[in-house]
Design a protein around this nucleic acid. Structure first.
Lengths: 141, 141
DNA sequence: CCGCATCCTACACGATACTG
DNA sequence: CAGTATCGTGTAGGATGCGG
């Protein structure tokens, strides 16, 4: 496996005394990727630039509040750019920056893996759950 | 970009009427990856199999509760296997399953990207914050 | 149309104490 | 050693209404 060495080196870094998890780059990124809407917005913008309301339509169940928040985060991190057209009423366009485009590749790999592996995961869950008739799992079922 | 087509097709799927976000494979996976400890445990186990207390030492700030929960999730999803040695006191070993090993590759790509891009992100944040002297960001600074 | 402020709820997570 | 059970908290995130 190719990525093995990088994973090992990360693990080594985690073991060091001076390791501060709060400013670990990986934690930082994964927290973003993992939150409920970030990756969704990135994927939507991979298609083409979108306006605010277009993004809302693209993800029907996102609230204005969270969409705004997600976009601000991405803008702050330099993954997307925000362009205001002073028309009336105003129009705002969001699009991926080069940095934002660059994340699509690793993100795409993960998405591919998810799609390829989902059946295996589902059957693994079914097997586990049938072997463990109820309890034993304190979290979301 | 290679992964562009898969991203686009995902986006297309999201747009369909029959799309149910709650059982979207990608959402499912990213929720796991994004939670606080899953990826950390996966990376730790990439090195070699670990016992429960070894994992605790590897991630000094994880509580027993969360470690147990994370391990259960991963076991249920079939990414890791759990093996109990009925010694006294008992020893339990966790190791990656083939499926678990397979996630290291896309996960490694993302980790690489995070490490490579972190400087850019930090400077983007600094620039954004200096341009927006305070307010304007309702979330964690 | 865009997006901020306010209020509120649910759940992720941590701390602690107890069992086989 | 390897967990489970219980409790308490912070905060992510949804609903709503106002303002430019």
């Amino acid at each position: 496996m190719n990525s093995r060495s990088t994973v090992d080196s990360l693990f080594g870094a985690m073991q060091s005394d001076t390791f501060d998890a709060t400013q670990c780059p990986v934690r930082n990124i994964l927290d973003r990727i993992g939150d409920k809407w970030t990756s969704l917005v990135l994927v939507a913008l991979a298609d083409r630039p979108h306006r605010f309301s277009e993004l809302q339509r693209a993800a029907p169940d996102i609230s204005k509040r969270m969409l705004t928040q997600t976009l601000r985060q991405l803008e702050r991190d330099g993954l997307i750019t925000r362009q205001v057209f002073p028309t009336k009423p105003p129009a705002v366009q969001y699009q991926l920056s080069p940095l934002g485009v660059s994340v699509l590749e690793p993100l795409g790999h993960l998405i591919d893996w998810a799609n390829r592996s989902y059946d295996q995961i589902l059957s693994a869950r079914a097997e586990y759950d049938s072997a463990n008739p109820a309890s034993a799992l304190p979290v979301n079922a």
